[in-house]
Amino acid sequence: MTNTMTDARLIALIEAWGADANAFPETERAAAKALLAEAADRFADTLQAARDMDILLGGMPAVTPSPALTAALMDAAPKASPQRRSWLAAIPRWPTIGAFASLAIGLAIGLGAAQSGATGTADDAVDTLVYAALGFDVINYSQETAQ
């Protein structure tokens, strides 16, 4: 590969990419290194000038974003859209659960009362069940109705 690298090309590489041959384009790196190893003296001045520049540039401090800039960049970023809640979710839960529990207990008690005291027709049984569920005293109510 050395025969494909000329002095002029090597000088051009050093002037562009600096004194470190590892920074040269990969396709020409090996040939450049070989020529440098073969005739280092011919390129000493060019290498020194490039090395001086590399040191100057390498001594430049890193630029660090301030916390304020970082915060501003974060603030400008997309925000997660709030999840949609159904109207059901908006209803407070415990009162609803309580109401359903009361209804279930009332129905259970009423059903028990109706089964023990029911003597009439199917319509009477339904009435009795509903009244009992609503908390009426079914026997008294029937007596009052009869009077």
């Binding site: 974003p65 970082t70 960049l73 974060m74 997660a80 859209s81």
Partner: peptide
């Protein structure tokens, strides 16, 4: 980050803002 994941946003900012 596009869906608003703050960790991903933070990673992109930290990686590329300097």
């Amino acid at each position: 980050a596009a869906s608003g994941d703050r960790q991903a946003v933070s990673a992109l900012v930290n990686r590329y803002s300097p």
